[in-house]
Write a protein that binds this DNA or RNA. Structure first.
Ligand SMILES: NC(=O)c1ccc[n+]([C@@H]2O[C@H](COP(=O)([O-])OP(=O)(O)OC[C@H]3O[C@@H](n4cnc5c(N)ncnc54)[C@H](O)[C@@H]3O)[C@@H](O)[C@H]2O)c1
Ligand SMILES: NC(=O)c1ccc[n+]([C@@H]2O[C@H](COP(=O)([O-])OP(=O)(O)OC[C@H]3O[C@@H](n4cnc5c(N)ncnc54)[C@H](O)[C@@H]3O)[C@@H](O)[C@H]2O)c1
Lengths: 212, 212
DNA sequence: GCAATATTGTTATTATTTTCACATTTTGAT
DNA sequence: ATCAAAATGTGAAAATAATAACAATATTGC
């Protein structure tokens, strides 16, 4: 099977979100141009992206959403819920916990939370199990957790990520400004950094006007 | 001046963050390979990126951080603090507010918050001015706000963004899962979507193993 | 001083990604 | 039935970005 390029994966992930919502609203078909509209992309791009999944529609007709969904599940692994954990249950960590538990998510299941501060573990009221930080590795392995959200202070980010890697996670979502490197091969890291995003926006706006 | 490609802007924004921290710690020089290490990139890439700024260093020597900083300020507009506002002061909005006010930021200044719920405006204790949502346009114009962080419910995201555009913002950082389209040309939009990021991570992990 | 080493500047090459073009197929109206 | 319109499938072209290669320059140790 040919490797799917990263930008394509990124867009197809959004496509999956969109068709799920449409399906809930009883919509059964969608065209490449409509999808393009939602994503801010052209119909060309969408068709080419879908092409990476193998044949999904028939010419002349729109895409059958059910078919599209099935293909995305098969090729991108969106079938069964991914088990996640949150490391660092401060303000951000707790907000993330609430957010992910509140929204009815068929795609992700938060099954554990970790913090080095025992007081935090006793303070937070939630339906999932909470553990001290030194038990990250064992717990991740035991519960077969695949994804970790890192929301500790930047200084501890790498160490927290290393423990998750040791436990066997497959992906890390880093909310701290620190740069995290995966300890093992095959672990993917992505960052969510507010200051960084703002800086990029500022630079985009600036360079676009500076060139006029 | 030649247009700087987006990936380059993205990386140079991180470079700016890194050299600021190093400068605080009294470090005066840095090499392309060291920078590459921080960013998870090769020295080649870093040198090529810096090359877009015009000449920054001299062969044989490392980069003078002060020079690099000056060039980044000139070319990417990181000189004076950018004025920001937060639209939607729920759990996430309040957390963002605290986060951006807490960290001593020379790059960004949060100068206003907006919410449609008057009760929220009276509940939150903060040092910046808070306004009802219907005053977004006027306030953004008056305070010359350049960047907006959108943290309302997804259904209201486009409307909130439109008002910010009307007021004249240059960039929008969208924290909701809704897709936002800029109302005016020249307004840049970026999204921070936890579910989306998780899905991308999951897909990356899945496709990497499915191909083995 | 000079050679060895380390480091940047710049061009060239390669790979990736986007965009385009058009053939093919279905639907629906006349 | 037939034609026009609309939609996807797919390969080619163009644009963009990453990687590599190497020349040029400074520093350091001897
Ligand atoms: N990307 C975003 O959207 C965003 C927004 C706000 C904050 N942040 C970042 O998120 C991080 C957390 O912010 P916060 O406001 O929640 O901070 P916080 O101080 O409220 O929370 C940090 C928590 O991490 C715990 N912790 C420390 N070391 C640990 C370890 N080794 N293992 C497990 N837990 C550990 C602490 O006990 C604490 O509860 C910071 O790095 C901050 O910069 C990111
Ligand atoms: N990207 C992330 O990291 C992340 C994390 C958590 C939540 N979220 C998203 O952020 C959004 C807010 O989440 P939350 O938990 O803070 O929700 P919330 O309900 O606590 O807050 C929403 C706030 O927006 C206000 N509001 C509604 N309509 C408005 C309008 N037109 N103008 C101004 N204000 C308006 C409401 O009064 C409320 O105070 C949601 O879309 C959620 O999905 C994103």
């Amino acid at each position: 099977m040919k490797k799917i390029p990263f930008p394509v994966i990124q867009r197809l992930s959004y496509v999956f979100e969109i068709i799920n919502k449409l399906e809930e609203n009883g919509i059964g078909k969608i065209s490449s141009s409509e999808l393009g509209g939602y994503l801010g992309q052209t119909a060309h791009t969408i068709r080419k992206d879908i092409h990476f999944l193998g044949i999904a529609g028939t010419p002349g007709t729109k895409y059958e959403i059910a078919d599209l969904r099935r293909l995305l599940i098969d090729h991108l692994g969106f079938g069964e819920p991914k088990r996640c954990c949150i490391v660092g249950l401060g303000r951000l960590g707790e907000a993330l916990l609430e957010q992910l538990l509140a929204i009815p998510q068929d795609a992700f299941a938060v099954v554990a939370g970790f913090d080095s501060n025992i007081n935090r573990l006793e303070t937070i009221r939630t339906s999932i199990e909470l553990f001290p930080a030194y038990r990250i590795e064992k717990t991740v392995r035991k519960l077969q957790i695949e994804l970790a959200l890192i929301a500790v202070l930047p200084q501890q980010a790498q160490e927290a990520a290393d423990r998750c890697c040791d436990g066997g996670v497959r992906g890390i979502l880093n909310f701290t400004p620190a740069v995290i490197k995966p300890k093992r091969k095959g672990v993917f890291v992505r960052a969510v950094d507010v200051s960084g995003e703002l800086r990029i926006l500022a630079a985009l706006a600036y360079t676009s006007t500076a060139n006029e």
